[in-house]
Design a protein around this nucleic acid. Structure first.
Lengths: 136, 136
DNA sequence: GTCTGTGCAAAAAGTTTGCAGCCGA
DNA sequence: TCGGCTGCAAACTTTTTGCACAGAC
């Protein structure tokens, strides 16, 4: 556990903003000005493989990272792309629903909600102008 | 509606493989050898904005496209990255579960199942060696 | 004839990797 | 010490964009 890796982990645990690799880079560089982007990527990879953080791979162009490795969902703002924790329990086991309907061995699912965050709600009331993608 | 756009749409509707832009490019080039990748990207964008196809933005490095614009889910193989349709109805309105638990205006959700496809099941029985990402 | 769409190529954005030297167990 | 980690830079992958010309209406 090098200092770099430690600082990355600390910074990630101190925010609830689910930053991208670039944002983590900016955060870490305030404390370790000579750190490199490559180190950030390498450590984010290592930390998520070891289960200390979570890589969020759902919609969106760039990957985000979550200092909270516990199982939980997120909701993304379609306007500003902000990602916020959604601590809910679904009322049923949705993986279970799939058994019998697929010949895959089902391990789990990735679920992300989409909508408008409080800040962006005044600006837009038109879903259609925002979403032209996957399920709605 | 140019010939290029038409061919892209036709090819996409003729497969159930959810190809990436590059794969669409390869498919279209068999019929229009002089087509350019830029044209593929531009038309995939236009077609998904107009609702004739669907852009799939969930997990994975590159975006996939679906000639079937009807609402449905997918399951992704963690080993070979193949994406297959999963035509199931969830037993409840999961967006509804979120109301009250968030100050977002909820428009919908993106859901993708993950697992092992039939071809890859013999090769691996170890989920842990495959997934170190979002929900499970 | 106009105006959008195309092909081509370069650029942008995000991520990965090779390498030589440094650091921590 | 010594193997893994770092900084740096270059490379790679995917997607976007500028531009001049062609094709559709």
């Amino acid at each position: 556990m090098t200092q770099q890796r430690m600082v990355i982990l600390e910074e990630l645990r101190n925010v609830d903003s689910h930053p991208s690799a670039d944002e983590v880079y900016a955060m870490v560089r305030k404390r370790l000005p000579r750190v490199s982007l490559g180190t950030i990527y390498r450590n984010l990879e290592i930390l998520s493989k070891s289960g200390e953080i979570r890589r969020i791979d759902s919609g969106g162009n760039l990957k985000r990272f979550d200092g909270n490795a516990d199982d939980h969902y997120h909701i993304r703002c379609l306007r500003c792309d902000r990602l916020v924790d959604a601590f809910i329990e679904l009322g049923l086991d949705i993986d279970e629903q799939l058994k019998g309907a697929t010949d895959f061995l089902v391990f789990g699912h990735r679920l992300e909600f989409v909508g408008l965050c409080p800040r962006c709600q005044p600006a837009t009331a038109e879903p259609s102008s925002l979403t032209n993608e996957e399920p709605s």
